[in-house]
């Protein structure tokens, strides 16, 4: 297990380094935005004396690197700071929002990932025949349409006409799981349609690539059925590219849901971010940016580690 341990440790260290670099970018990015925090808190009519006092209080007169390390130190201790717009702690607010976003992403992933892989396997099994073309056509169409369009179309049919699901996906803590699932059915469907095509096409391409190998011919000459050849011999060798694209899409489910959350008025991170960008609430924007980056780097890290671990040459060295 020697080399594999070293590789995984290397990956994790790189991930942390990347996250640190992202935190610098976020901090610098929010600093060069126009406007002054003290000004935006106190409004246009503030006296110069009040502004100066508040700046002193918030530590805005300190040099940038001092403020950066103060911010970073707070985050490392679990303190995300205070929202300017309402003076509340950011941590607990974000925790609830993040929980909701992860809830939505989780159920979208539960539907989308197995479906995408199954469709990919089917497309390979019937490649260049009508099931393959149908699957490719539908998924391609769904990825080509903008999310808001799909969202409103689904709302029109399933919420307005058929009245199966609510059009507003509001969830409370007091709801049962089933009620929550009913509430998020439409956003889950939209997210699934959006990420399905990418994952399915990558699965198809990765497996088709493996299908050229000599060991696939060996499997065919053993008299295995076409589906067994694909699932037992092709799929295990296509895992690492598939996991890669799955992870990118999972990250998208968390990070890219802004539009979908706004359409369905879902109380998640995306809406939280959009609200506070509008209010110029810099600490909140910084915190959400960092969390999004953390999710993105983390999931891609998982993909890298799976790729390393799924390689028998690394898992079982000579």
């Amino acid at each position: 297990m020697g080399p594999i341990f070293k590789l995984v440790a290397q990956r994790i260290a790189l991930g942390l380094l990347l996250l640190l670099a992202v935190s610098v970018l976020i901090f610098v990015g929010t600093q060069i935005l126009p406007g002054d925090v003290a000004q935006s808190i106190l409004g246009q009519s503030a006296t110069p004396q009040a502004l100066a006092n508040l700046r002193e209080e918030l530590g805005l007169n300190d040099p940038a690197h001092v403020r950066y390390f103060r911010w970073l130190g707070g985050i490392l201790q679990g303190d995300l700071g205070t929202a300017l717009s309402n003076g509340q702690e950011i941590g607990p607010q974000i925790a609830r929002r993040l929980g909701n976003t992860l809830f939505l992403a989780f159920w979208a992933a539960v539907v989308a990932v197995p479906l995408a892989i199954l469709l990919g396997l089917l497309a390979v099994r019937y490649r260049n025949r009508w099931p393959d073309k149908l699957i490719s056509g539908i998924t391609l169409a769904s990825i080509s349409l903008p999310e808001f369009f799909i969202g409103y179309v689904l709302i029109y049919f399933f919420a307005v006409k058929l009245r199966w699901f609510p059009s507003v996906a509001t969830v409370y803590d007091s709801m049962s799981l089933l009620e929550k699932l009913n509430a998020i059915a439409l956003p889950v469907a939209v997210l699934t349609l959006v990420v399905l095509a990418h994952m399915m096409r990558m699965t198809r391409a990765a497996i088709l690539n493996v299908m050229q190998s000599a060991y696939i011919e060996t499997a065919e000459l053993k008299g295995l059925s076409a589906f067994n050849v694909i699932s037992r011999h092709a799929f295990p060798n296509a895992i690492s590219p598939i996991v890669n694209v799955v992870m990118i899409n999972l990250a998208y489910l968390v990070v890219g849901v802004v539009v979908v959350e706004v359409i369905f008025v879902y109380p998640g991170m995306g809406q939280y971010l959009v609200d506070h960008v509008a209010k110029r609430d810099v600490p909140v924007v910084q915190a959400t940016g960092l969390i999004f980056a953390g999710v993105y780097v983390g999931l891609n890290l998982v993909a890298d580690i799976v790729a390393i671990v799924s390689n028998p040459r690394l898992r079982h060295p000579k």
């Binding site: 190998s213 000599a214 060991y215 011919e217 060996t218 499997a219 011999h233 295990p236 060798n237 799924s310 028998p312 040459r313």
Partner: peptide
Amino acid sequence: AASFNPAK
């Protein structure tokens, strides 16, 4: 070498 599945 090419005809055995490397993952099994």
